[in-house]
Computed example of a mutant assay.
Amino acid sequence: MAAIGDDGQPLAPLLRKLIALGPVMQGEAAAVEALPLTFREYRPGQEIVRERDRPNQACILLSGLCCRFKIVGDGARQINSFHIPGDMPDLQSLLLHQMDHGLLTLTRVKVALVPHPTLLQLIAGHPRLGLLFWRDTLIDGSIFREWMCSIGRRSARARVAHLICELFLRYRNVGLVEDRSMPFHLTQTQIGDALGLSVVHVNRVVKSLRRDGLISLASRRLTIGDWAALVDIGDFDDAYLHLTPES
């Protein structure tokens, strides 16, 4: 069994995320704490779940970074979302029995696996947790819609700035921001695959944001130098993240 609640415990990011989604009572937290978990580690570039798989368990991301992705007809990759600790990126497999995309690790990753029947029992016994999981999937959809607006209508500079703002607030939501600094392991290729940009274009934008003092990068961390300016450039409104007062 895995304990949660303290920052040093494996499921602490998930609990923080659930609390950010809505109230979590002590009994509900205890039920999550009692989940039987199987832990697994992956190297960068491994698929946790493949397109057309039929998973019988859901994964909780404990550390690292992964993405949902699809490969189109000519072999090009489109990244559909990034996932950070506390996320359950294949939660939809609980009700959609065949995966319509893959889940790929971008760094070293540790996950906890929960059998679907166990997760369904948790939801049946604690309906409010089920509502929180449902809210999480609805916010997933909201993020997809915002990404579509970025790819379809925002400039390259705005797309990159918008993504940085989003990741910053999501990392802060699970307690992984220090002052104005967050983990940042994305390569320019991965950013391009997510935002529909060439590596050359991403490189130019990142250089311009650094030159203007809006961001700095060092030791796989990104520090925001001017949040207000970054928000303005990115046309960023955090309403689509549906953050609660608790978060």
Rank of each mutant, 00 (worst) to 15 (best):
M1K: 09
A2Y: 05
G8V: 09
P10D: 12
L11I: 09
L11V: 06
P13Y: 12
L15D: 03
K17F: 09
L18H: 03
G22A: 06
M25R: 13
G27L: 07
E28N: 13
A30G: 04
E33F: 06
P36D: 11
P36S: 03
L37H: 02
T38H: 12
T38I: 05
P44L: 05
G45Y: 00
G45N: 01
I48D: 08
R52G: 00
P55F: 02
N56V: 10
A58L: 15
A58W: 07
C59M: 12
C59I: 10
C59T: 07
S63E: 11
C66D: 05
C67Q: 14
C67L: 12
C67G: 15
R68F: 01
V72C: 09
V72Y: 13
G73V: 10
G73N: 15
R77E: 12
R77G: 12
S81M: 10
F82C: 09
F82E: 08
F82Q: 04
I84V: 14
D87L: 14
M88C: 11
P89A: 10
P89L: 05
L94S: 12
D100A: 10
T105H: 14
T107M: 09
T107D: 12
V111P: 14
P115Y: 04
P115L: 03
P115F: 02
H116I: 15
T118P: 08
L120C: 14
Q121P: 01
A124N: 08
P127D: 01
D136F: 11
L138S: 12
G141R: 01
S142A: 13
I143G: 02
I143R: 15
E146T: 12
R153L: 14
R154C: 08
A156K: 00
H162R: 13
C165N: 07
F168N: 03
L169F: 08
R172C: 07
R172I: 01
S181F: 01
M182G: 01
M182I: 09
P183Y: 04
H185E: 05
Q190M: 00
G196M: 02
G196C: 05
L197K: 00
L197W: 00
S198P: 03
S198T: 11
V202C: 02
V205H: 00
K207Q: 14
S208P: 01
S208I: 11
L209A: 03
R211W: 09
R220E: 09
I224M: 06
L230V: 10
I233H: 00
F236G: 02
D238C: 07
A239R: 12
A239E: 09
Y240Q: 05
H242K: 06
L243M: 02
S247N: 07
S247I: 01
